[in-house]
Structure formats: structure tokens, C-alpha cells
Nucleic acid binder design. Sequence first.
DNA 1: CTAAAAGTTTAGACAAATCTAAAAAATATT
DNA 2: AATATTTTTTAGATTTGTCTAAACTTTTAG
Lengths: 217, 217
Amino acid sequence: MQSFTEENYLKIIYHLSSDTDVAVQTNAIAEKMGTKAASVTDMIKKLADKQLIIYQKYQGVKLTDTGRRTAINIVRKHRLWEVFLVEKLSFKWDEVHDIAEELEHINSSELIERLDEFLAFPKNDPHGDPIPDKDGKFDSATFIKLNKLKTNEQGLVMGVSEHSSAFLKHLEKLGLTLGKLVKVTDITDFDGSIELLVESKKINISREVAKHILIKA
Amino acid sequence: MQSFTEENYLKIIYHLSSDTDVAVQTNAIAEKMGTKAASVTDMIKKLADKQLIIYQKYQGVKLTDTGRRTAINIVRKHRLWEVFLVEKLSFKWDEVHDIAEELEHINSSELIERLDEFLAFPKNDPHGDPIPDKDGKFDSATFIKLNKLKTNEQGLVMGVSEHSSAFLKHLEKLGLTLGKLVKVTDITDFDGSIELLVESKKINISREVAKHILIKA
DNA sequence: CTAAAAGTTTAGACAAATCTAAAAAATATT
DNA sequence: AATATTTTTTAGATTTGTCTAAACTTTTAG
Ligand SMILES: [Mn+2]
Ligand SMILES: [Mn+2]
Ligand SMILES: [Mn+2]
Ligand SMILES: [Mn+2]
């Protein structure tokens, strides 16, 4: 069994490496954890001793299979709890992350399997992220970023790659929520900002916002 | 904010003093916490510094109003989560305590108020214990222990004062669950064991078991 | 009322997770 | 290739929660 802290390190290493599977640097972990590089070095030694990561001095770390399985299980719990909070307790999608950060460390596989069942085995969390099944498997459907669409192209909002409350509230206000059909009607020359049609409403978003909206064509 | 450990100390002090409101002894706390008396002394100094308890050397501790409020809130969370686990996730009443011990430390009043609403504001947990409302108020209905009933007296099972899985499973098997009407049909001279009628079924329980069953006449 | 027993506190130590400051290694720049 | 910069590691402290062993206080029993 791992401490909450060890679990958070594993999860961060997972998120920093899941796209690329390249070694994760000490400083990158420190930044995400909100600690100093020296603390990270201490912890990665400990995780390496426990065979959860592979560590070579000055070369960063990679998850072992066990480490990755552990990390994915934490992600599974996080996302299932987020679904619970939104679907059953009527939280908004911008309110659930911090609570899920705590709930993800509750240690009971029986609990999580029953929660999964209670929620009718959801495939995605409130932000569109896939929920791994109990064996750690999930479809890694790759979506396009909205800023890649050209004028007159359209697609469905499938997820977001930024989870801050400020960003999510902004989307909510614009009506840019999961499942919505969006069509690019114009792209401004000056700053690249994008004019969209969402449910016959015309809205404008910045390029920066568009980058974090995931679209299925 | 308190650490999990501090919260557990407060809760234990509360449970050890809630009946009598007499000072709680160091050793009693140590036993419940599964630590040594020396550790308890360290911790009660800290809790006293934080004004959560009143401590006089060698004289045990009492909760302050703040300390009691904090403790009751943890009990509220524990019992609401137990209701959730039984009512929504179909756990048995003997399976929920350990998971609730973890969940009770999740720190979000918004979460707990919404959970309370989701559960339709239950008054009692799966073991019959009262659930404090958000202001810490609850009816402390006092029930009779089943071993106090005489032959031919009867009453409703309202709760249990022992929460071990072994005990609860035993009751389950005997059909002695919350809300059942029981009637004492005989008391054995030899060992004081009690013969009961539960839903027209005759069962036998030891005096020790009877002591932990709470009855409304 | 005194002595033994029980209960509590102090002293000193340790493991976990963190920090700062300094040293060392890797990488980038001239 | 030599130097400057960035990144990482080490060394030494600190805080939290725990422990054992010894000292001290309170309670119980003779
Ligand atoms: Mn989240
Ligand atoms: Mn999410
Ligand atoms: Mn319980
Ligand atoms: Mn209970």
C-alpha cells in the first residue's frame, strides 16, 4: 500500500508521461506537486525502491508496469467519483476536481466496483476523459483540438484538456459543453480568434481557449 | 483544519465522553487509538494548544465546544457515508464501518450537505445510531438494552451498541435486524441466555449478545 | 497512613515528507 | 572545447506522529 503522497507522485508521473512514454524530469514533477526538486529526488528514490518507477540519476523516471497500473487505478477512482458528484449530487463540472482529489485515495476496491455499477459503468468523466475499467483498459480515442478546425468545418465537443474552474465556467457560460455540435464560421486574421456557431448561437473564443477544447469531426 | 489523526483523536474523545461528559483518561484514548499513552500525551497537548480540548496534567481531557462541534461533524459524515454505502451501493451493515472511517475525513461541507440531501436526510445510520444535522443537533433517544427485558416483554430493535462485523453478521443470521419486533419467551437460569420470538421464529442468544441490542419498548 | 500498583508524563529516538543551501552533473552557448 | 546556465542531487534541518524506557503522580490496598 502507498501513502496519499506516493499515490499523488505516481499519478503525476503518469500524466506527465502518458502521451509520450518518455522519461519524466525531476523539475516537471516538482512543479506539478508544488514541492522542491530535492523533495522529488527523495520520493523517486523511494518509489524506485518499491519498484513502481525506474530511476536513473539525472535521467528522469519512467513508470514500471506495476507503477502504471497503480496510477491508472487512481485515475479510475478520480474520474468515477467525478461522475458521481455531477450525476448524483448535482455538482457542476467545474466544482468536482478538488473533491475527487481527496476521494481518489479512498482505499477499497469493493467500493469502487460498486460505485462503477451504481453509475452504470460510465465510459467518460464530466470533462470527457475516459474512465479506465477495473483492468486498467480504456479507449484512448484521439480528438482534434478545436483550434485545428478550418472555416466551415464542424464537430462535436468531446472533452477539454484544461480543468481549471475558471476555464470550465467560461465554457459553461458560452454554452460550449460536452456533446454540443460546433461549426467554425470565421477565423479572425488579426489574433486568430474563432467565431463559432453553437446551437444556432454565434459566439467568439480566443485561440487559447480553442486549444483546450477537444473535437470529434 | 485538522489532520486525519487529530480528527480521529477528537472523535474517540467524543465517543468516550458523550454519555457521561466526564474527563477522558489517557490510557482509554491510547487503547482506542491503538497507540501508546506517551503518544496520547503528545497529541492531547497539541489539541489543547488548538483549544479543541481542555487538558490538565494527570486529570484527563474534556472537549471544548469547538472540539465537540468538530467531533460531531466527523460522526455526521461517518454515519451519512454508511447510509450511502448501504442504501445506494448495497453494502451489508457489517461491511461499511471501515470504509466510512476513511470517507469521514473527506473535507467538503458542500459535499456532505449534498450527500445528506441525496439520501433524503436520514435520521439514523444502518446501525440505528442518530445522524447529527449540519448544526450538530440530533435526538438522543435512549433505548433499553435487550438484556434488561423480562420474560414476555417485547420491543422493537432500534440499534446496536457493538459494530464489529462478527457481531453484526451474527445478528443478520438470526434475523435480528433493525425494526424487528422481538419478544422474550424465556430466560435460562443457568447462564442467563435469552430465548426470543422474532417474526414467529424462536431463537436463542447469549446475555453478552443481548447487551448490545437496543430496544424500544 | 503508608506502600504497592496503576496511570501519566518526560526524555530521547526514529521514520516520513518536506525544506534550504551547496555541490555535482548535464546541457546550452559562445 | 571551454564556459555559462540549467537541472539534479546531496547534506543537513524541520515537522508530525510514533515509539521505549525511565521518572513522576495518583489511586488503591493493607
Ligand atoms: Mn479531475
Ligand atoms: Mn475529470
Ligand atoms: Mn461505523
Ligand atoms: Mn454506524
